[in-house]
Design a protein around this nucleic acid. Sequence first.
DNA 1: CCCTGATTCGC
DNA 2: GCGAATCAGG
Length: 174
Amino acid sequence: MTDTGSGWTDERVDLLRRLWDEGLSASQIAAQLGGVTRNAVIGKVHRLGLSGRVKAADSPGNGRKKPAPREAEADNVVELAAAADPVAAPILSFPETAPVIVPQSVPLAVSKRVTIMDLRESMCRWPLGDPTSPDFHYCGDRSITGLPYCTHHAQIAYQPAAERKRDRRVGGFR
DNA sequence: CCCTGATTCGC
DNA sequence: GCGAATCAGG
């Protein structure tokens, strides 16, 4: 079905160009493209003659910092989440189908109830439940560094345009 | 240890 | 052309 794996199609190269331009790291881009490693991305970037881009506002130095987005008032959670993650914003304001993603289904009894207060930079921000409900929480799994979601949810959130049109699995937003 | 991009080089 | 392995570094 279309190209799901690697293979630098025009679409993928274009996406690579835009993301690299936006300042995303090679690993972040690789995660979104899917089917490729950061090495592949870097290699391609160099072959395309795109290196040395504009410094991205990023402090990958190391250490435990990042205050984590807080100051939340339970009601604008979705907006706050989007604001905190420019990359996720376009997803939440998603056109076509899907009106504001408000996945729901997970049995609250089993959920870990990771509220926005518990969220750390390295935790998946995939929203679970109704944002207006006090039960609203986040996935909380280890997120792909730099991305707001874990590998599982990143795949759901970032579907390449090419395959997105044909593949839309929403049967339950696990 | 986490991560970053750069380079090499067999395929 | 591609990208894993490697390198050099924060």
